[in-house]
């Protein structure tokens, strides 16, 4: 139903989420990412959500929890490419997600990590 890919770019993990994610998929992603970050000593996680047509409160909380967990593992999480209509809806839903780092494009997101990240 959904396709989630994780690509290692230097010491940053690029995660692309596309299509429909069930709650179970979202929780599985959170566990996978935490394990990956610890195993590879990643410095950062970029989650590309440009393929997501909606982000509801469950998924928003999961993204927030992923960021919090990776922070404890010394890696920063940046949410990339949120669609404008998704942003508008999240705010109206009451979710402004303070503390969550965002960037509009993958390139901008990668720039947050400076050296050590090779472009594809």
């Amino acid at each position: 139903m959904s396709a989630t890919s994780v690509i290692e770019m230097g010491d940053v993990l690029l995660v692309t989420v596309q299509g429909e994610l069930t709650d179970h998929d979202a929780v599985a992603l959170q566990q996978d990412l935490a394990a990956n970050v610890a195993e590879r000593s990643s410095r950062g996680v970029l989650i590309d959500v440009s393929g997501m047509e909606i982000v509801d409160s469950f998924l928003a909380r999961t993204l927030h929890d992923i960021a919090a967990a990776t922070e404890l593992l010394a890696a920063k999480t940046v949410i990339v490419g949120m669609r404008p209509e998704v942003a508008i809806t999240l705010v109206e839903l009451g979710l402004t997600l303070p503390g969550l780092a965002t960037a509009l494009t993958v390139a901008d997101g990668l720039a947050e990590f400076g050296d050590g990240v090779r472009p594809l």
């Binding site: 047509e53 909606i54 469950f58 669609r83 508008i88 809806t89 839903l93």
Partner: peptide
């Protein structure tokens, strides 16, 4: 519109859950 669709589908997701 796209924003209207997104609000509707998001509300549907919350209520279905």
């Amino acid at each position: 519109s796209l924003v209207e669709q997104t609000k509707l589908v998001t509300a549907a997701s919350e209520l279905a859950r």
